[in-house]
């Protein structure tokens, strides 16, 4: 408020308001969503061509016979369900997805807590380092894990033998291989959980903990009564999202075990690849992968509900 004169702004040129365009606000609102739709169009086109159409095509394919000439209805599905090797795939997929996600979530939660207690610049560095597994292409890191697990050159087995212990066939027996696959998936996915939970932790107001401390809560009680309820939403959404991704996982199993030993670690995706592309029975491969659909659709429904809720927040 330096000079006391009214000279300030309106002295010089006159502002000519932009030529007034007559158009109702409604039209304006409509123009807004038209703009939005237009911007979306390429994406929608892409999705229709590469997602919607193939999905229906998959359903069509799954109802053909091996030569893709005759229509066989649901025979492929019925056949698959009657095969013990496929029953094993269903079991293994569920077991893998659920165990891996629980491990990732737990590990991510613990890591996030540890990180949360590191203050200042160090936290940033640790966070960066811990996120690395998630950034390396999964197929390459899996390859490295494979090397670590290798029976003869394995770093693990080498260490074991150094202590005078027998080497372990990490990928050679059913359960060892299953656990190995889950370990690698956890190693790859936990950083994502960690980073999300860390952000959520940071958003919990400090006063809540202080209030709880004054009310006499122990560290454990703070975790149960404050941290978990406050993080409920983010835990839910990350777990759901991760379940979808983990269910559909391909890379790890393909590289690490390629379904072996004796098809005991196959997931839907790898089995479908095996049957559909490698053995050339495309219809049956399609039906294998379609078994994922109901499971994923259920999970997607819940994710979508969250997204809807969130975009409602945006539009209000």
């Amino acid at each position: 408020m330096a000079d006391g004169s009214t000279m300030a702004i309106d002295a010089g040129t006159t502002t000519s308001p932009a030529p007034r365009r007559v158009g109702s606000l409604k039209k304006l609102a409509r123009r807004r969503s038209t703009t939005a739709l237009l911007l979306c169009a390429p994406l929608i086109l892409l999705i229709v061509c590469l997602k919607v159409y193939p999905t229906f095509y998959a359903i069509f394919l799954s109802m053909l016979d091996r030569k893709m000439e005759n229509f066989v209805g649901l025979n492929n599905f019925i056949f698959l369900l009657s095969r013990p090797s496929f029953q094993l795939v269903i079991f293994q997929s569920c077991f893998f997805a659920i165990t891996a996600v629980v491990m990732k979530a737990t590990l991510g939660f613990i890591l996030a807590h540890l990180m949360h207690n590191i203050r200042g610049k160090n936290q940033r560095i640790w966070r960066g380092l811990l996120l690395v597994p998630w950034v390396i292409p999964l197929s390459l890191s899996t390859l490295t894990w494979w090397w670590l697990f290798d029976p003869s050159y394995s770093a693990f087995n080498w260490t074991l033998s150094w202590f005078g212990l027998d080497s372990i066939p990490f990928l050679g027996t059913t359960w060892n291989a299953r656990i190995a696959v889950i370990v690698v998936n956890t190693w790859f996915g936990a950083p994502f959980f960690m980073i999300m939970y860390l952000a959520a932790l940071k958003s919990v107001p400090e006063q809540l903990y202080e209030a709880a401390a004054i009310d006499g809560a122990t560290a454990w009680q703070k975790l149960i009564y404050i941290t978990l309820p406050m993080m409920r939403n983010i835990i839910l959404i990350t777990v759901l999202y991760s379940l979808i991704v983990t269910f559909a996982d391909f890379d790890i199993v393909r590289i690490l075990t390629n379904g072996g030993p004796q098809d005991s670690t196959h997931l839907f995706a790898t089995y479908a690849f095996n049957v559909g592309i490698e053995s050339g029975n495309i219809p049956r491969g399609a039906s294998v992968s379609l078994f994922m659909f109901p499971i994923l659709a259920t999970l997607a429904f819940f994710v979508l509900r969250d997204v809807l809720k969130r975009s409602k927040e945006i539009s209000t």
Binding site: I47, L50, K51, V52, P54, T55, Y57, A58, L61, I244, V245, F247, A248, D249, F250, F268, A269, A272, F273, G276, I277, I282, G285, A286, S289, L290, M292, F293, L296, A300, V303, L304
Partner: peptide, 14 residues
């Protein structure tokens, strides 16, 4: 639609 994973789509896409 976006949530349909590639491992479900690779066969029809093939």
């Amino acid at each position: 639609v976006i949530l349909v994973p590639p491992s479900l789509l690779f066969i029809p896409l093939f």
